[in-house]
């Protein structure tokens, strides 16, 4: 990485100047676009006589956000959703990775269970939510289980796929150096599959928010998903808008944290192929 940095610094100045200008240009346009959309959101509903229970304006939403903070325990709902998103993500991806590695080490069992994995992967996981409520009641268990289930598969499938494509020559090299099966797993297979594991985790992080939201929508009286169904019931569109916005922020933060971890963990990959 130090090499890459020093080479880009040694580039001739004019090229660098043009590049910086080009890089920040899309940021300006991006920001400009946001401003245009926000202004239209604020102005258009009033001009077109759209009632606020259909499309609340930006200022309606901000006012409602204040109310939610004051009267609807917004912070505790947000915290609950965030905690269960992370918890479900961690448990689901740990299980997915563990089973992915186990099956990856045993081609026999992989063949035995792969049709069922495929079937379960296709089955819509969110549809399990009412079942979980019947089994576990109106508590946090159903939303945690939906999240675990939805996060589990992309991680499992990515790890399994990567285990199949580990370079056989690397494994032979390790065998020739008399490494044990466990050492081969830790020193060759785990690091070889890391890029795929990280890709699976990134996909899983976006799904985790969906899992928690569906769990909260279907049952319970805690969380942003609950606020969505509560707000919907009262024709309070601004509350629904706000809850969706905060859910999106939770998902983005999780995704960005993973991106950071990935950049750290995979620092040895050259930038262009990354």
């Amino acid at each position: 990485m130090t090499v890459a940095a020093s080479t880009s610094e040694s580039k001739p100045k004019p090229v660098k100047a043009v590049k910086v200008k080009g890089e920040s240009k899309h940021l300006y346009v991006s920001f400009g676009l946001l401003v245009v959309v926000l202004v239209m959101w604020e102005v258009l509903p009033g001009m077109l006589d759209v009632p606020r229970y259909i499309i609340p304006t930006l200022s309606d939403c901000l006012a409602e956000l204040k109310n939610m903070y004051a009267f609807d325990k917004l912070l505790s709902h947000t915290a609950s959703t965030a905690i269960f998103t992370i918890l479900g993500f961690v448990i689901g991806s740990a299980l997915g990775a563990a089973i992915g590695y186990l099956l990856g080490m045993s081609p026999f069992w992989e063949k035995v269970v792969s049709p069922y994995i495929l079937a379960l992967q296709i089955a819509p996981k969110v549809a399990f939510a009412p079942l979980f409520i019947m089994w576990f009641g109106y508590n946090s268990m159903p939303k945690l289980l939906v999240t675990v289930l939805i996060v589990f598969f992309p991680v499992l499938v990515n790890v399994l796929q990567a285990m199949r494509t580990v370079d056989r020559d690397l494994v032979n090299l390790a065998r020739a150096y008399s490494l044990t099966r466990w050492q081969i797993f830790v020193k060759i297979e785990m690091p070889s599959t890391l890029p795929n594991l990280m890709a699976g985790l990134r996909i899983a992080s976006t799904l985790a928010v969906i899992g928690v939201t569906v769990g909260e929508l279907v049952g319970g009286n805690v969380g942003l998903g609950y606020l969505i169904s509560y707000g919907g019931g009262q024709a309070n569109a601004a509350m629904v808008f706000n809850a969706i916005g905060i859910l999106t922020v939770i998902g983005c933060v999780l995704y960005m944290v993973l991106e950071r971890i990935e950049a750290r963990a995979l620092h040895y990959l050259p930038k262009d192929s990354h």
Binding site: D167, S178, L179, Q183, K187, P191
Partner: peptide
């Protein structure tokens, strides 16, 4: 000790750790 057309260096290890690889068992 054997060596192939592919260098089989582990991309996640720096050069010295790669050289140490065969000594670790």
């Amino acid at each position: 000790g054997f060596m192939l057309q592919k260098d089989l260096l582990l991309p996640w290890r720096d050069i010295i750790s790669n050289v140490e690889f065969g000594l670790e068992s």
